[in-house]
Design a protein around this nucleic acid. Structure first.
Lengths: 110, 110
DNA sequence: ATTATTAATCGTAATATTGCGATTGATATG
DNA sequence: CATATCAATCGCAATATTACGATTAATAAT
């Protein structure tokens, strides 16, 4: 019985999957674009930008926070969200690394 | 009643989400890396590379195919998978565009 | 102190994802 | 023709995601 299977996924693969998952929903992409556009990280009017309910937006924000891509600071009664620069760069690099690999290696077959 | 909500997501957002979803699982990242590494697009020994069953690998391949990132060509009894160059570049650009936006705009707040 | 606003959380429902083993249909090979 | 191999699909189970309205806790305004 040839035990040749890769037993687990690498940390890099898992990390990349995490970032990709964070941006795998249109609502979360809209949120990220909004946070980038409004330089000053405007808070809960994100809800007004999206075609979904407040509670659902809150969930998406929670997921984005969990991925590390954004941060949330409490500012009185409202919450101020913004891109986490460090994580953003990490994600950008991880993604970029995957996509460049092929473009460099490029040798079409099928 | 201020009807100011964005009624829907844009095509770009939906497309980007589709690509991100395709790479949002470690197994699918492993598959993509494998297809890039083995320049000649080797077929079903992808299964041997992964810690999951053949039927599950087949499902992940199906999803990758659905996203457009890979193609599958039947070669006798086996199937030869490889990166779809055109879609790959599209995905790379879509992702790159999102990530660059912040890095250019960069103006930390929180 | 009462009321309004904000944003998280709870409870619930519908649907999607991930995974498996078993089966199937196709093509090779004996 | 019989048999082996490959890869898709089926059926099923467990879990995750997406979404909503209702409720809650916190702070701000009257």
């Amino acid at each position: 019985m040839g035990a040749s299977k890769t037993s687990e996924y690498t940390k890099k693969e898992i990390e990349l999957a995490k970032y990709a998952k964070a941006i795998s929903h249109p609502a979360r992409i809209t949120i990220l674009n909004f946070l980038i556009k409004k330089k000053s990280c405007i808070c809960g009017d994100i809800v007004d930008e999206l075609p979904i309910a407040q509670s659902t937006v809150s969930q998406h924000l929670k997921e984005l926070k969990a991925s590390g891509l954004i941060k949330g600071n409490i500012d009185g009664v409202s919450v101020c969200y913004c891109i986490d620069e460090k994580e953003w760069k990490k994600a950008s690099q991880s993604l970029g690394f995957l996509f460049e690999k092929f473009i460099v290696n490029n040798s079409k077959c099928c």
